[in-house]
Nucleic acid binder design. Structure first.
Lengths: 104, 104
DNA sequence: TTATTATATTAGGAATTGCTAATATAATAA
DNA sequence: TTATTATATTAGCAATTCCTAATATAATAA
């Protein structure tokens, strides 16, 4: 029923379900970057990074264009930052809860 | 560095990265439900559903309380609905894009 | 042309996730 | 107590994801 919808929705979450991919998205917050500038900021091999970029691209989170021999990536759907902010809010609340439950 | 942060963030996304878990969250949009009322709305075995509920609970997305022999689940961090709305916006835009690119 | 730089793709194995079937636990009912 | 209902846990296997190492491709430089 709305089952296909849930599949599509979970695919987007899945694309964000990896620390390296979160890091990539964060790196692009201040504007586009070529792969060559992304790579040194990550703790991940070139081929692995390329695969992570493909995952993000397949879900429409980032897009890319070619510039000479370089490939420039940028954020395609900026909602992703609001999503990350919401997750951070959840995590902060969870941490608070843990703290208060420990101090009892 | 902020690496632990990205791990925590991606853990939350991971919890939402399954169609059944999205469905569960949607079912809880109108209020708490016991497992017995969740089950018939899902296309998933009892033990499997129980495991999915545990995943959501571990990431603080839902919480549960006991009521007699039943266990009642509810949403703990309602930001999750804003997140789903944002994902749906991304998907709709992607679909529009696909449509216009096909009609060219 | 040959070499170099930038990026992508592929294959294969390791690690993780997801599912089913069986069993366990806990509360209530008979 | 015994049975039943509601839910959780566990083990083991299937499916998926992740990573590395190797190779491919494409653009530019020499």
């Amino acid at each position: 029923m709305s089952n296909m919808g849930n599949q599509l929705i979970s695919n987007v979450f899945k694309a964000l379900a990896h620390p390296t991919r979160i890091q990539i998205v964060k790196l692009l917050r201040n504007g586009e970057l070529c792969v060559c500038d992304i790579l040194p900021n990550l703790d991940s091999e070139q081929s692995n990074t390329s695969q992570h970029l493909t995952v993000l691209k397949n879900q429409g989170i980032v897009e890319s264009r070619k510039d000479g021999s370089k490939v420039i990536y940028s954020i395609k759907n900026k909602e992703v930052y609001e999503m990350i902010d919401l997750v951070e809010a959840i995590i902060l609340r969870q941490i608070e809860e843990t703290k208060t439950s420990l101090s009892k």
